[in-house]
Design a protein around this nucleic acid. Structure first.
Length: 529
RNA sequence: GGCUCGGUAGCUCAGCUGGUUAGAGCGUGGGAUUCAUAACCCCAAGGUCGGGAGUUCAAGUCUCCCCCGAGCCA
C-alpha cells in the first residue's frame, strides 16, 4: 500500500518561513526513509492560495491575486528544491482540477444532508479569517493574536453539520496513534467533549475563492478548500477530477504532518468531512511543535525571523537538517540557538562523522594500496563494531518509524562515536610500527570503514547530501531516496535495497579509495544568523 | 476563570509501573595520542531534581497547596 504523507498546504500570504521548512524537511526525511524501506511513497506538499487575506495582500502589492499566488508559490517551489525536498506532488488550490474536485466533494456532503444555512454575525478578524467571540456591543474590538481591529459582519453562510459526527469523532480520536504525539490528544479530547458545533464553510462576497455551487456570492471557506487539496494532489496528470478515483491513487493518507496549531482541523473537522463525503480516514495526524529563537517567539515585530533561504545559503542543507531533526524532539516546541547549532554541527558532523571517514580512509590508503583492506574471519558479526552497527540500525529504523528523528540521528551518530573509540583503542598507527600486526590492522581498518559505510547509509534519510558525499568517498553507490522512482544507481544499474546493504560485511575488500577530502566543513559563522 | 502540558547539572534533555553513590550530549577544566578537518580518545568538576506540606521502611518518581512558563477552551 502506498505510503501517502502530507505537509500542510502553506498559505501564500507571505514568503516561506522557517516553520514551514521545518515541517517540510521532517516530512522529507520520513518520505526518504519510507522509500529506502522499499515502500511506494507519495509525498505531498503545496500551497493554499485562496482567501481574503491573500486578496488584500495582492491588492496592496498592486497585483492580481493569481499573479501574487504564482509569485509566492514559486518561492516555495524554489525553496524546496534548494532544500532537496523530495516531494512527489506540489498542489496549488488554484489548480483548475481542484475546483472541480471541491465541487464534487461539496455535492456529496450536501447529498448527505450535512450542509445547512445559518446566519453568522459578529466581529471578524481578516487576518485569522474567522469570527471572534467579542460581544456585539464592543466598540473597537481587536484581534488578540493579530492586534488588529475587527470588522463587523452579518451574513448568511453555509454550515457543515459537524455536530452529527460527535460520536464518530469521539471514537476516532481514541484510536491509538491517530493523534500523535499522544501528549496532544487530551487537548483534542477536551475540545470534542465540549460538544461539536457546526462550522461555517462559506463566505459571502469574497471573490478570491472557489464558488459554492448553487449559492450565488458564496465561496468556500478555508477548510472546505485547502484540506481538499490533499485529495486533488493525488490525481495523476491525465486523471479526471473524480473522488471515486482516489482510493487507487494513494488515499487514505498514512499521515498528515502539521503544526500543532491546526491539529483540531485535521483531527476533527477533516475526518468528519471525509466521513460525510464517504471517503476513508487518514491513518495519523502528527502535530509537531513550534520553533522559537534564543528563547523568543520569532516574529516580524521582533525582527528575529530566521529566513530559511538565507539559512540554507550560509550553512548548507546538512547543517540545518541535522540541527532541527537531531536536537529538537519532533512534537515538542524547540528553541533554535545559534551557539548550539554550530556546536552540534561541528561536533557531530565535522568532527565525529566527517573526521572518522577522513582518518580511516587516509590510513587504509597509506598502508593498503589505496584500497579497502582484506579482513580476516575475525571481522564477523560478533565484531564489536558489527554489534554496534546492528544496534544503530535497529534504533534508526525504529526511530524513523515513530517520527523520532532525534533517536534516529543519535543512533547513527553513536555508531560513529563507537568507531572512533575503537580506532583509538586499537591504535593501528602504533601497530603498523610493530612486526606481525599487519593483518590486525587490516581487520581494524576494515571494520571501521564498514561501520562508516553504515553510518553513511543510516544517515541517508536525514542527511541525503552528506550521506552521498560519504558514500562517494567510500566508492560506494549512493542510496537513492528521492522522488524519482527507479533512479540509475551503480555501474550495473541494479539497486541493492537499502536494508540489504546494511548487512554487516557488505563492503568489498579491495575497493579502491579515492583521496579523502573533508565531507563536512566546520561551520564558521561570522555574525548572527 | 476551567483544563492540559512542562519546571532535573551553565545549555538541550533522559529518568518505565516509587528502591543502592540522579544520567547523556554540548559547554568548561585536565590528561593521553598523532591516523585525521587544532580533529579523535580518556578523566574530572558541576544538581538541596521550582517551593512547601503529606503518604511510605523508602519519592525527581504518588497526594495536596503554592510559584513560574507554554498551550487549549471560555
Amino acid at each position: 500500500m502506498t505510503y501517502t504523507l502530507t505537509t500542510p498546504l502553506y498559505y501564500v500570504n507571505d514568503k516561506p518561513h522557517l516553520g514551514s521548512a521545518y515541517t517540510t524537511l521532517a516530512c522529507d526525511a520520513l518520505a526518504r526513509f519510507q522509500r529506502l524501506m522499499g515502500r511506494p511513497v507519495l509525498f505531498i506538499t503545496g500551497c493554499d492560495e485562496h482567501g481574503l487575506k491573500i486578496q488584500r495582500t495582492a491588492e496592496v502589492a498592486g497585483l492580481t491575486p493569481q499573479a501574487h499566488c504564482d509569485l509566492v508559490s514559486d518561492q516555495y517551489r524554489a525553496l524546496w528544491q534548494r532544500w532537496q525536498i523530495s516531494h512527489d506532488r506540489f498542489i496549488r488550490t488554484t489548480d483548475p482540477r481542484h475546483r472541480l474536485l471541491v465541487e464534487q466533494f461539496y455535492r456529496r456532503v450536501e447529498a448527505a444532508g450535512d450542509v445547512v444555512e445559518g446566519r453568522q454575525r459578529g466581529w471578524y478578524c481578516v487576518a485569522c479569517e474567522e469570527f471572534k467571540d467579542d460581544p456585539p456591543e464592543a466598540r473597537t474590538p481587536q484581534c488578540s493574536t493579530h492586534q488588529r481591529p475587527l470588522e463587523w459582519r452579518d451574513e448568511l453562510n453555509l454550515f457543515f453539520r459537524l455536530s452529527r459526527y460527535q460520536s464518530a469523532i469521539e471514537e476516532l480520536i481514541q484510536r491509538p496513534g491517530f493523534i500523535a504525539p499522544a501528549s496532544r490528544r487530551r487537548e483534542v479530547e477536551n475540545f470534542v467533549a465540549q460538544g461539536l458545533r457546526d462550522f461555517s464553510i462559506s463566505r459571502l462576497d469574497l471573490p478570491w475563492g472557489i464558488p459554492v455551487p448553487g449559492h450565488q456570492g458564496h465561496t468556500f471557506y478555508v477548510w472546505f478548500d485547502a484540506l481538499l487539496g490533499y485529495l486533488t494532489a493525488l490525481l495523476e496528470p491525465g486523471d479526471a477530477p473524480d473522488l471515486a478515483l482516489l482510493s487507487q491513487r494513494g488515499w487514505p493518507a498514512s499521515i498528515h504532518v502539521i503544526g500543532k496549531d491546526i491539529l483540531r482541523f485535521h483531527a476533527v473537522y477533516w475526518p468528519a468531512m471525509l466521513l460525510s463525503a464517504g471517503l476513508e480516514l487518514p491513518g495519523r495526524v502528527f502535530g509537531h511543535g513550534f520553533l522559537t529563537r534564543e528563547g523568543q517567539k520569532m516574529g516580524k515585530s521582533l525582527g528575529n525571523v530566521l529566513d530559511p533561504g538565507e539559512l540554507l545559503e550560509r550553512c548548507g542543507p546538512d547543517a540545518v537538517r541535522w540541527y532541527l531533526l537531531r536536537d529538537i524532539p519532533f512534537g515538542d516546541d524547540g528553541d533554535v540557538q545559534q551557539q548550539r547549532f554550530s556546536d552540534l554541527v561541528n561536533n557531530d558532523l565535522a568532527n565525529t562523522i566527517g573526521n572518522l571517514l577522513n582518518r580511516t580512509s587516509s590510513m587504509a590508503r597509506r598502508w593498503f594500496d589505496q584500497a579497502v583492506p582484506s579482513p580476516s574471519e575475525a571481522v564477523g558479526s560478533h565484531h564489536p563494531l558489527a554489534q554496534a552497527a546492528q544496534l544503530a540500525r535497529e534504533q534508526v529504523i525504529d526511530g524513523l518509524e515513530r517520527l523520532d528523528f532525534r533517536q534516529a540521528a543519535a543512533a547513527a551518530l553513536q555508531l560513529a562515536i563507537s568507531a572512533n573509540g575503537y580506532l583509538n583503542d586499537q591504535a593501528p598507527w602504533s601497530r603498523m610500527k610493530q612486526e606481525g600486526q599487519r593483518q590486525q590492522v587490516a581487520d581494524d581498518l576494515y571494520a571501521v570503514l564498514e561501520a562508516t559505510r553504515q553510518v553513511a547509509l543510516l544517515l541517508a534519510p536525514i542527511l541525503p547530501d552528506l550521506s552521498g558525499r560519504m558514500l562517494l568517498q567510500l566508492n560506494q553507490p549512493l542510496a537513492p531516496s528521492g522522488a524519482v522512482a527507479g533512479g540509475q544507481d551503480g555501474p550495473d544499474g541494479e539497486q541493492v535495497p537499502w536494508q540489504q546493504r546494511l548487512t554487516w560485511g557488505s563492503l568489498a575488500a579491495g575497493t579502491p579509495l579515492p583521496e579523502p577530502e573533508p565531507v563536512m566543513a566546520r561551520l564558521e559563522l561570522d555574525g548572527p544568523l
